[in-house]
């Protein structure tokens, strides 16, 4: 088995011709159809789609919690056949353990993987400092605001130095102000750590601000409608939210959605 701490970026993530069909009480439900996408080693890729388009299923496929009905999932060149620890996950909700301190929450994956905690304590402290939480290591989650909790969750997702970080609408539960500062924060942390990121969202500006590339998905069954490279320099700032190129991309994506909705 790979030692997660030693994982180089590998060759990122590849999903090849994925079909996903759920068995439900009302018969089979086609969630994804012939979906292919890839995330390069240091690439930030957003998946943008309407709710219920199977975006979250995509993340579960990528970390091996779900098996595709057809097609292949490759992580660093190896097929994903069972849950894989080379990925980090950040959910919509912080889902921290309320009985553990912030520092211990960040170390949860290390303990769960049976790795020596002492080797990772310093890294946990560095990640928390990077997330602006240096003074809160001994606090309990309920003493933190929603945005701070989500930053703890981000540190937890990065603690074992995963080759790939999966993020499932991580800012959607936050208020608008916190969201914007979290976008900046995430970009800053990403520029420092340079993980491959697969970021699921239904916010167009969020996707444009953060991504190298945006994968636009259709409604159910989810397919790839188009892929767009975001050719804007980094680090992007709040001012870039008003940049003509930024607004162009947003408009283009919005029109694309409207067209897809009209076609559906």
């Amino acid at each position: 088995m790979d030692v997660p701490g030693a994982s180089d970026a590998g060759q990122g993530l590849r999903l090849e011709h994925i079909d996903l069909v759920y068995a439900t009480s009302r018969g089979p439900l086609e969630a994804l159809r012939d979906l292919s996408l890839s995330v390069g080693p240091r690439e930030f890729v957003s998946v943008l789609g309407p709710s219920g388009c199977g975006k979250s299923s995509l993340l579960q496929l990528a970390c091996g919690l779900l098996a595709p009905t057809a097609g292949r999932v490759l992580l660093a060149g190896e097929p994903v056949l069972r849950p894989r620890s080379e990925v980090g996950i950040v959910f919509q909700q912080p889902t921290l353990l309320p009985w553990k301190t912030v520092l211990d929450n960040v170390l949860v994956p290390i303990r769960a993987m049976g790795l020596p905690v002492a080797d990772y304590r310093q890294r946990a402290e560095e990640l928390l400092a990077l997330a602006g939480l240096a003074g809160f290591m001994r606090h309990y989650p309920r003493e933190l605001s929603g945005g701070m909790q989500q930053r703890v969750a981000l540190a937890r997702g990065l603690i074992h130095d995963p080759g790939l970080l999966l993020m499932d609408e991580p800012f959607s539960a936050l208020d608008a102000m916190t969201r914007e500062s979290m976008m900046e924060e995430l970009q800053r942390i990403w520029l420092k750590t340079r993980k491959a990121v697969l970021f699921v969202t239904h916010s167009i500006p969020e996707a444009v601000y953060l991504s190298d590339r945006i994968v636009v998905m259709s409604g159910r069954p989810g397919r790839v409608l188009e892929q767009i490279d975001v050719d804007m320099a980094r680090p992007r700032t709040q001012d870039d939210l008003g940049h003509p190129r930024f607004l162009d991309l947003c408009r283009h994506l919005r029109d694309g959605f409207r067209a897809a909705e009209a076609a559906a």
């Binding site: 091996g64 849950p83 889902t95 949860v108 769960a112």
Partner: peptide, 18 residues
């Protein structure tokens, strides 16, 4: 929480640990 269970599954935590 199902997400947390997923997190432990991805980390390949043992049953007793979880």
């Amino acid at each position: 929480d199902r997400g947390l269970r997923g997190l432990f599954a991805v980390a390949q935590a043992g049953r007793l640990h979880r």
